[in-house]
Design a binder for these strands. Structure first.
Ligand SMILES: [Zn+2]
Ligand SMILES: [Zn+2]
Ligand SMILES: [Zn+2]
Ligand SMILES: [Zn+2]
Lengths: 143, 143
DNA sequence: TCCCTTATTGATAGTTTTTTTCAATAAGGA
DNA sequence: TCCTTATTGAAAAAAACTATCAATAAGGGA
């Protein structure tokens, strides 16, 4: 994400300090952050964002396609910054580290199959992979 | 789902009236139901389940693989009864109707690709398709 | 650069969702 | 039928999320 400020502006929104802070925290984190986690991070870094602002900012960012909401096992709902377009994530179940990947032809085929089988017209999909990142794999092998 | 009572018993749990009621409501519904929705349904049908019991029952059922938690746009977390094994759902975004589809080889190729690309070891995945069911498609065409 | 309009913020309060607690109840084996 | 103990559900607490509104600040225009 680099041009996100321009995107905000073009969409008629203001580039405010709190919005910058939220985006920065997300970019620095590398793992899905919940609204609460963002709130606490912001306090640690003396930015003191309001929790309400965080909710609103995440919602706006999601609508603009700047962040993506992922579903976690515990508690659900972390947010990750995303590059423009459609995407998915592999999330490490141990450290939370998330890596984005594009949906491939495989998925397209699968969806076509399901449409044929069920008669549904598929408009969107939710796909997340959960596993162990290389670092956590190595760690586990030592134990 | 037919042998779910046996499955409960074999796992050392009791087959109670509230558990039967929750399963029945889920089976009758055909769409994802939230804990709150189950609570209200149960009151309508004079079964008066406690909300806490519903939460606990859903959690147990999920652990036993009898139901599956799906993530909805608004409010998140509906529950659907599932047949044994691995599977996913197509959910109608208009009427909520859900259809299960088996996921055997599923995403094997895709996952293998991602593992190679990212170094992650993928353990599980979350896949949901969202779209329009045949009925709702027809309805939309008339409008 | 300064001002003015108005989008945005955040404190407070309110609502919804989920979890904890614990005495009363009932499932199911003896 | 009785007894043990898993299970229930009312009530209360905690967590997650939303609504309100006066004060603030972004950024366009003078
Ligand atoms: Zn969710
Ligand atoms: Zn990891
Ligand atoms: Zn439908
Ligand atoms: Zn699958």
């Amino acid at each position: 994400m680099s041009g996100w400020k321009e995107l905000l502006t073009q969409a008629g929104y203001r580039v405010t300090e709190p919005r910058c802070a939220v985006m920065q925290l997300l970019l620095d984190s590398g793992m899905p952050l919940s609204p609460q986690a963002l709130f606490e991070s912001s306090r640690t870094q003396r930015q003191n964002l309001g929790l309400v602002t965080i909710y609103r900012t995440l919602e706006l960012f999601e609508v603009l396609g700047l962040v993506c909401r992922v579903h976690l096992k515990d508690g659900c709902h972390g947010y990750l910054p995303v590059s423009p377009g459609h995407h998915h994530f592999v999330i490490c179940e141990h450290c939370g580290g998330a890596v984005e990947f594009p949906g491939g032809d495989d998925l397209r085929m699968l969806i076509a199959d399901i449409e044929a089988q069920t008669g549904y017209r598929v408009a969107e999909h939710l796909l997340q992979l959960i596993g162990l990142c290389p670092v956590c794999q190595a760690q586990r092998e030592l134990a």
